[in-house]
Simulated assay, not measured.
Amino acid sequence: MLNFDKALDLPPQLQWKYANEPELMTWSIRARNYNTFVANLMFSFMATVILGATLIMYSVYEGMSQSWRISSCIFFFSLMLLVLLSVTHQRMNFVYRFTQSGVEYCKWKDFPKWALTFLKWFTGITAVIFIFLATLDSTFLIGALIGPGGMGLMYLSMANSKSFQEMHTEYHHHTFKWEELTQLAIATNREVVDLKYSITLKGNDYKTNWSLNVFCERKQKEAVANVIRPYLSPGVPFIKAKVNVPMSTD
């Protein structure tokens, strides 16, 4: 049995189907299970928009001291950039488990409750700071509306929107028998071992052909592929190739 690291504990919503079988290999990883090129482009575009908003904010604060003007703009830009990163660079929890029956894995994403607590306290503290500064310079009232005001609205929308929280919460469990795999590929462009499979979904009378992206560290790809290869059916191709990682639709 190969263990790359101590596997994450599964949430109560998930459990292994073949828990009674010995493990051939198991590991856990947090990975970006989507097209990172598109996500990075989105981040770059939105970062440019935030920079433009920061420059507008800088011009509005013309009457205040230069040090406060610069620091408040840097604070606004940094905060919005962190929020943007949390949207475009999200990661999913994966735990993989190989047994004699095949490939089994669980993936999940919990809604980050800590983010609400942090945002609530951060909004309150920055609001007090801006209100105090407004007693020295009334232009800080604009900053209070843009900064703490915007964060307050964000907190309320996150805390009270059930659909928003459900969008950031996922639990999935999948199993594939070795005989269902039709191709094994070591990705040359991502830390992924790609498995093509052909299965008949419940309720269908035809085969569904798709691919499974097995996420791992760069140095683990060869080891993962070598464990899988002996269990494949005769004639199943084993290649190295560029692999697409589409947005998950589970």
Rank of each mutant, 00 (worst) to 15 (best):
M1Q: 11
D5Q: 13
K6Y: 07
D9S: 12
P11Y: 07
Q15T: 11
K17S: 09
Y18L: 09
N20K: 14
P22V: 08
P22F: 12
P22A: 07
L24T: 03
W27E: 01
W27A: 01
S28T: 06
S28R: 04
I29F: 04
A31P: 00
N33C: 11
N35P: 02
T36L: 11
N40A: 09
L41A: 05
F43L: 10
F45N: 02
F45K: 08
F45H: 02
A47W: 08
I50R: 04
I50M: 11
I50C: 06
L55W: 12
V60L: 13
M64A: 10
I70D: 03
S71D: 03
S72Y: 04
C73D: 03
F76P: 00
F76N: 00
F77I: 02
M80T: 04
L81Q: 12
L82N: 08
V83I: 15
L84D: 01
L85I: 10
S86P: 00
R91C: 08
F94M: 07
T99C: 02
Q100Y: 04
G102E: 05
E104P: 01
W108K: 05
P112A: 10
K113I: 06
A115D: 09
A115F: 14
L116C: 01
F122D: 08
T123I: 08
I125G: 02
I125K: 10
A127F: 14
I129Q: 03
F130W: 12
F132M: 13
T135G: 01
L136T: 06
D137V: 03
D137W: 03
T139V: 13
T139M: 13
F140W: 04
L141M: 12
G149L: 11
M154H: 07
Y155D: 08
Y155H: 13
L156Y: 13
S157L: 15
A159V: 10
S163R: 15
F164V: 13
Q165G: 08
H168R: 13
H168K: 09
H168T: 00
T169D: 01
T169N: 02
E170I: 07
Y171K: 03
Y171R: 05
H172G: 04
T175A: 08
T175N: 06
K177W: 04
Q183Y: 06
L184P: 06
A185D: 08
A187S: 15
A187E: 07
N189G: 01
V193W: 05
D194Q: 14
K196H: 12
S198A: 14
S198Y: 01
L201A: 15
K202M: 11
G203I: 12
G203Y: 02
K207T: 12
T208G: 01
W210A: 15
W210S: 15
S211Y: 10
S211L: 03
K219E: 13
K219N: 10
E222K: 15
E222Y: 01
E222D: 12
P234I: 07
P234M: 06
I239T: 15
A241T: 15
V243R: 07
V243C: 14
V243A: 10
V243S: 13
V245L: 08
T249E: 14
